[in-house]
Design a protein around this nucleic acid. Sequence first.
DNA 1: TTGTTACCAAACAACTTGTTCTGTATTTGT
DNA 2: ACAAATACAGAACAAGTTGTTTGGTAACAA
Lengths: 190, 190
Amino acid sequence: MMDRRQKKTREAIFNAFTELLSEKSYHQISVQDIIDTADIGRTTFYAHFETKDYLLKELCAELFDHIIDTAMGLPHRHACSYGDESDSVFLHLLRHLRENDRHILDLLASDNNELFLRYFKSELKKLIVSQYGVGNEAPHAALPEEYRIHHIASSFVEAVSWWISHRCKESPEEIAGYFAATVDPLINKN
Amino acid sequence: MMDRRQKKTREAIFNAFTELLSEKSYHQISVQDIIDTADIGRTTFYAHFETKDYLLKELCAELFDHIIDTAMGLPHRHACSYGDESDSVFLHLLRHLRENDRHILDLLASDNNELFLRYFKSELKKLIVSQYGVGNEAPHAALPEEYRIHHIASSFVEAVSWWISHRCKESPEEIAGYFAATVDPLINKN
DNA sequence: TTGTTACCAAACAACTTGTTCTGTATTTGT
DNA sequence: ACAAATACAGAACAAGTTGTTTGGTAACAA
């Protein structure tokens, strides 16, 4: 069983951290800041997280793992499944980002976005491999599979990044449309 | 006229900085490290650069501005100029990155790549605007112009990033080919 | 109730940044 | 060639940072 105290302070640290992240940029936040904001002892912080970077990593995991996992469970779409992007994994992700967990978009909108987007991208690659990945009959002979995966993942992350920089004016459907317009030829072969 | 001493120490600082960047990651490098490696006085460093971040910025400028500027001078290619990517701006950039200034690729290969690629991308956007930018007759009605520019710039930077992560095994021509395969429909309308 | 565990407070050494002082060497302009 | 301006070095500085150690207190689980 997990000690109630542990959960509490862990929560307090995460809360303090995200609160600070919405004010300052990551590298301007000191461990001392987190300790003060979370109102915990210095020793306690280091008992929970070896370093500030590990804290960030665990926060990323907490933020994205659930989203990615649910998307993993979606029916796989192969190169041969045409049209109808209305329920594509990507649209699913966009909706999930906006609706279920607005907290994420706040963090992504700060000037720390690169930190989170990097993590997001690496997780996204796994998802893309599982959905559109290797094993299909060479959708693009001239393009290495790795390059294709890298490009699709990057493009999606950049789409999200662009979306956020526009303060999410557009609907998830619109963004999914833009994204599809740029990478569809690489996913569906016609 | 510029004092000989200034040039010398400025060079020494840049050299020390790039040397350190090939060993450690940016955030692990202290001003003290740079001072020690460059073998200069503490006061001298701060006389030249207000902070470590400004040093980085000026290094980026020194690295990329020339490359981008020469590419700016190239003949503009409009949406209507078909085929023959063999002398596209992008291929030009790739060759320039590899041949003229191997120093850059060393830095881009370190784990600080994001720092430089971010600068590179922002400069690249200007270049793309000037080459394929606004003013063309709506190559993609469904795609906002800003989004298109953002996507093209990102895709190229990611291509370079992928290239480097592969230790530049491929030739510039190959990478230009991969890049073209992913974004050509957005540049040349057929 | 009795260990076990999480917490806190305080102090710690080692390091960081950016500034300020004084003195020395080099360059520049005339 | 000489004087004034300027770039540099070295040392010391306050203020802040990180990560660890100590000893004591409270909460938990069995």
